[in-house]
């Protein structure tokens, strides 16, 4: 069985007029880096939240590794949210211990090595770190897991180009090669070179799911150029 994620008829509506995700059916394989692309309000974050059990679908189902969302899937999914979710009063080393306690696939040595490479003192409290450093620490904690699925929500949004390079390098060098990485972003040009497949979302619906090579061969364009054409205002 090569399927990692099976989504069937997935719908999330907040009320009758507001449907954030509309009847998506999708299967994602193992071992791919997949870009989740779409304009603001297209339903990317809603889909990601449902994959992580942070939102309950109105209809439809999601299975990861053949299991519905629950503690078993959460043990195998490494999630980087689009915000800082780490307690401000805790130190970096406390959070390393925290991840080590709760996630069996967490590699503490790898996390400490990455922190050292960035000269981040593990004894520092989060509240004293800059926004960019907090994001890096959060990414390090997520990427130090040997998960089956990495879900990264806007990992390079709002950071400078140097930090962007670091984040992309960290993702590429540290993810479990047998795992799938799902990256949601607007900055397609920066991330295109690492993607195997792309999902285009529009108005909560699945507009396109194909390989990056297919876009280049079929349309003779980069993913970024094709995205701009599809979503031209």
């Amino acid at each position: 069985m090569n399927e990692l994620i099976e989504i069937v008829g997935l719908t999330k509506s907040y009320d009758e007029r507001s449907v954030a995700v509309n009847n998506i059916t999708l299967t994602l394989p193992k071992g791919k880096i997949v870009g989740l692309l779409g304009p603001n309000g297209s339903g990317k974050t809603t889909l990601i939240k449902m994959l992580n059990g942070l939102l309950k679908p109105t209809r439809g189902s999601i299975k990861i590794n053949g299991r519905f969302i629950g503690p078993e899937t959460k043990a195998r999914v490494a999630y980087l949210p689009d915000r800082n979710c780490l307690p401000e009063y805790r130190t970096v080393s406390e959070m390393v211990a925290y991840f080590g306690d709760f996630y069996e696939d967490f590699e503490k040595t790898r996390a400490l090595e990455m922190l050292q490479s960035l000269n981040i003192d593990p004894g520092t409290k989060f509240k004293t770190l800059s926004k960019g450093t907090k994001e890096k620490v959060q990414l390090i904690l997520v990427m130090s897991r040997k998960a089956d699925l990495y879900v990264l929500d806007e990992p390079i949004a709002g950071v400078d180009p140097a930090a962007r390079d670091y984040i992309l390098r960290t993702i590429i060098n540290n993810y479990n090669p047998e795992a799938t990485v799902l990256i949601s972003t607007h900055l397609i040009g920066d991330i295109e070179q690492v993607l195997d497949e792309v999902i285009f979302m529009r108005y909560g619906q699945l507009a396109l799911y194909t390989s990056v090579d297919n876009i280049r061969e079929k349309y003779g364009k980069s993913v970024d150029a094709y995205f701009r054409e599809v979503f031209a205002c």
Partner: peptide
């Protein structure tokens, strides 16, 4: 915001 961490822990 911390709920994003809490609710993605592998716990019931």
């Amino acid at each position: 915001d911390e709920g994003y961490l809490t609710h993605t822990l592998p716990v019931t």
